[in-house]
């Protein structure tokens, strides 16, 4: 077992998040998929940080978390306001920009 175990785990998580984005229609769940992808990246960051004996990777993960928090705030606000106006959280219904 090497650091590659963590990377494989991160890949699996990232893939799950990706497939979630593509397959699920509830925008909240889709959003959770995005969060999972961010966490997978964080895992990889930390694994590499340990591999190089360097705290910089941890810093990167930290910033990812901060940005994720900001993103969640805005994203959920968007979802809420969409739900208010359209009474739905399905990503498939939000296709007004197409026309």
């Amino acid at each position: 077992m090497t650091v590659s175990a963590y990377l494989i785990l991160a890949s699996v998580l990232f893939t799950i998040g990706t497939v979630t984005v593509m397959v699920r229609r509830n925008s909240i769940i889709v959003f959770m998929g995005v969060e999972l992808m961010l966490n997978a990246a964080n895992l990889a960051f930390l694994a590499f940080a340990r591999m190089w004996g360097n705290v910089d990777g941890q810093l990167a993960a930290f910033f990812v978390m901060v940005v994720a928090a900001a993103e969640v705030v805005v994203g959920l606000a968007i979802i809420v306001s969409l739900f208010r106006t359209r009474r739905t959280v399905s990503v498939d219904d939000e296709n007004l920009l197409r026309h």
Partner: peptide
């Protein structure tokens, strides 16, 4: 391809 579904776009991007 431009079907208005964000999920399709995501698939294309992926």
């Amino acid at each position: 391809i431009q079907n208005g579904y964000a999920r399709s776009y995501a698939a294309t991007m992926l």
